[in-house]
Nucleic acid binder design. Sequence first.
DNA 1: AATGAATGAGCCTTCATTCAT
DNA 2: TATGAATGAAGGCTCATTCAT
Lengths: 213, 213, 213, 213
Amino acid sequence: MMAEDAMETACRSGARAAAQRTRILQAAQKCFVEHGFHAASMATIAQTAEMSPGLIYRYFRSKSEIILAIIERQLEIVRERIGSLHVANDLAAGIADSFHAPTDCHDDMIIAPLFLETSAEATRDPQVGAAVAAVDTAVRTEFTRVLMRAREEGGYGLPEELATKRALMLLCLFEGLKVREAREPHLDHGLLESALGDILGLLLAPQSAEPAG
Amino acid sequence: MMAEDAMETACRSGARAAAQRTRILQAAQKCFVEHGFHAASMATIAQTAEMSPGLIYRYFRSKSEIILAIIERQLEIVRERIGSLHVANDLAAGIADSFHAPTDCHDDMIIAPLFLETSAEATRDPQVGAAVAAVDTAVRTEFTRVLMRAREEGGYGLPEELATKRALMLLCLFEGLKVREAREPHLDHGLLESALGDILGLLLAPQSAEPAG
Amino acid sequence: MMAEDAMETACRSGARAAAQRTRILQAAQKCFVEHGFHAASMATIAQTAEMSPGLIYRYFRSKSEIILAIIERQLEIVRERIGSLHVANDLAAGIADSFHAPTDCHDDMIIAPLFLETSAEATRDPQVGAAVAAVDTAVRTEFTRVLMRAREEGGYGLPEELATKRALMLLCLFEGLKVREAREPHLDHGLLESALGDILGLLLAPQSAEPAG
Amino acid sequence: MMAEDAMETACRSGARAAAQRTRILQAAQKCFVEHGFHAASMATIAQTAEMSPGLIYRYFRSKSEIILAIIERQLEIVRERIGSLHVANDLAAGIADSFHAPTDCHDDMIIAPLFLETSAEATRDPQVGAAVAAVDTAVRTEFTRVLMRAREEGGYGLPEELATKRALMLLCLFEGLKVREAREPHLDHGLLESALGDILGLLLAPQSAEPAG
DNA sequence: AATGAATGAGCCTTCATTCAT
DNA sequence: TATGAATGAAGGCTCATTCAT
């Protein structure tokens, strides 16, 4: 009721504030991975972030805003990854490795449970649905572009129609891997890598004559 | 007063009891799809089932038992579907169609949001994790078997190692489709069908000489 | 709404009805002893009485009416026991024996937990309080009368004032034994009997010269 | 901001926390006396304590923990009282006075309804049963010791066997008084005091020759 | 007379959020 | 900025009671 700088309604700015927000988001992500969006309580998040529950509300308006931020960050990671299709040499190995990576609070990974809950939430929350659809469309578009690009330019030289189909299937495949990560975490690493090698070989092979579907 | 001594699944037996259980499960499934496992309240489920909250507990011991029952039913559907790979003629079309099917309480469909939440839950609840892993392993095994079976016997005549890899990728692909269903519900139906046709053609093609990965 | 014999508002009459009431009361008593007045549910009582919950309400208007009936029966037993002071020979042994009697549904025993819960309830429910106080006063009066009666008439020949005091103390003693029964159920039987013999000897001894209080 | 690192009894520490715990326990005791352990609701307790229901759970894990705390406190009072037999002068008056003391939330009194419900609960809850039995045994032991102690040392000079019996009977008598307090709250004070004087005179009298039982 | 399915109020408990300090 | 005590609205679940059969 005294010094009350009421002009800062939303979030804060400045280096300190950013650090706090990051701290909270990392804690929240850890809790969400461990318990899910709903089962993770603000108290637990606060404890994990080693701060008081009240303080969190200085940086986020609500729990749902934190969830949105986490989802947004996950989408951001996807956006950052767009284009990694270039490096076709060890693609299978890279993807397979990220499969068995530890679920730590790595800030640059698509965490399977978060991905799944986000995808489910997309069917309920229009805001999430729109954001997710936008990113996915962008990814498919970029995938398609890379598949169409000439081989000598680091692409795969597929004709547009085929590239569009293959891009979609690639996306499904990668997302399916996230599902697999959650449902069968002890999946054999060697099998996974060679299976990926096989299918990527098929999908990205230079086109001469298509097999009859 | 009708067939009295029927299968005693859980708490009560009898035709009436079975009908009530079904009614509850359908209502619960609807609520879970709309709000998620944890956000759906027993009160909402009761209202959807057009009964009082207390009555539900005559047929299910707890909310979590209902969740488990729903999950178990979804897994059951998967089990029932194992082997549909045989019918390779319109496989792509069939899968694509089920993609755009209405999300009604149809009792024989794998509902995308439920599938995703279940997969996420598998990460946390060991009971769910075990059930899910068991089913998935069975599916992969059956997929592999079909891929290995001779063409004249309705199979695809793949050698074992390749069949194992392709089965895994097929599973990922199908699961990825469920993700897509949630994230991009308005995906173009024709594209999806032809993309599926293309990739299934690649994966299930008769083997003469493999393309170099 | 059809044949509705509305003239039977309260309980039923007839041999069958009485038997049912008894059956219910015995079941209720057993449940109350095991779980307490509040923790025992009507469903449990019904199950114990091997009848449906609904049927109970044909014979008792409410659970609280059953509780009252049980309390009333316990008081009745007390009333019936009034006057047993006559038989002074084996009084100590008799009391001590009833201490270690099995807690079965014996219909003619003062059950310790019921006695205690009833006494507690007496401080809350005026109806119970009044009934209990009435019985206790009667008991004290009768005790006093016996203590005053001449020895040759089966009494103890105490003067009125002393008899009044001793009657009160005897009542406390007996009630204290009920408490002991609940709190120290494995109390040594021999000790109890001889302790009772000792104190009864003191209290009921022929009066020549009183000790100075 | 005051004495910060105090005794950490349960969940929280600090002067404020202790005060809150006390506040809750006093409110709970009042409610338990008025309604009984099970009939008193957390909402009522919270209202009595003039706080929100949720806050109680900051200081107690559950209702049952509160009940246990109340019971434990009552037992503690008994422990503190052990040994008051010394002061034989006005013993009868003192006991009689405490009989008619107001039932306020005095923190150092054995409240009759609580005592009775606790005793009944001892029959059902093993934890309560054990605690109660332990205290009672201690009390009897101490009573016996005092009765055996030489008169010149503030005791009553009874031989061991007799002391054991009389100690048991004294305990019953005192407990019976608690029953009486609940069942006949308007019992004549003068009568009670003189009756106690009489019986204590008998039980604690110097031993020369026992009367024949 | 008898059943047991059904109701709905109320109970214990949790938790997102606020606010005095 | 930071705390954590406090709130109060649900949430899951139980149970006395009713009623169609």
